[in-house]
């Protein structure tokens, strides 16, 4: 679901764009965490349009229909960070070149604008690119960055660092849709005296 707010945006800057959008699911777990429905992710090296294309590509590689663009934006941010050219070199990094060329290829295959075609067509273009350095650069980053942030944790139902204090009194054994195993097989709580 590409956000209209975002795809209408036009930035003239050569680099250092911004990704922005509005949360699609007003009552989702992410909306509960977010201070407002609008979000923005500033980019240091990629243009806004590059960011939008990469986000659209990531949505095809790891399709979660109910997952907010705001979470996919973490992948763009991560790629943006890695795209930074080496210090003291006024040039685009190797990854930057790879992304530039890959995006140009996608646009060409789409007849000019990858963002203008629908999801089915995007997937059709991307599928044969599986395994290419461009595709792998995005997939390899996304498989980490898409699932390693608090918004993703909230969406997928993983409590992350909340576990640091322990689940002993916070639901480690709260499953009720199956019978509780008997003792001694099922063990004993720290303060429980063994009965068998």
């Amino acid at each position: 679901m590409s956000s209209p707010t975002m795809s209408r945006r036009v930035f003239l800057k050569a680099s250092g764009g911004v990704l922005a959008g509005t949360l699609a699911f007003a009552s989702g777990s992410i909306a509960l965490l977010a201070p407002s429905r609008s979000w923005a992710m500033p980019l240091d090296n990629l243009t806004s349009r590059q960011g939008e294309v990469l986000l659209a590509v990531t949505r095809q590689i790891f399709p979660h229909p109910d997952l907010e663009d705001a979470v996919y934006a973490h992948v763009v941010k991560s790629l943006d960070r890695k795209t930074r050219a080496a210090d003291n070199l006024d040039q685009v990094s190797a990854l930057g070149h790879l992304l530039d060329e890959g995006i140009a290829e996608l646009d060409a295959a789409a007849g000019g604008d990858f963002l203008a075609i629908d999801d089915a067509r995007r997937l059709e273009i991307l599928t044969p690119m599986g395994g290419t350095p461009f595709f792998e650069a995005i997939r390899g980053d996304a498989v980490v960055s898409l699932y390693d942030n608090p918004l993703a944790f909230a969406h997928f139902g993983y409590q992350g660092a909340e576990g640091d204090g322990g689940y002993l009194t916070k639901g480690f054994n709260d499953l009720t849709w199956l019978p509780d195993p008997p003792q001694p097989q099922g063990g004993y709580l720290p303060f429980e005296e063994p009965t068998a």
Binding site: Y167, F172, N173, L175, G186, Y188, E192
Partner: peptide, 15 residues
Amino acid sequence: IKGLPGNNNFKVMYN
């Protein structure tokens, strides 16, 4: 030494 208490993942495996 008594057994550790089983968590939810254990309950599924046990059953």
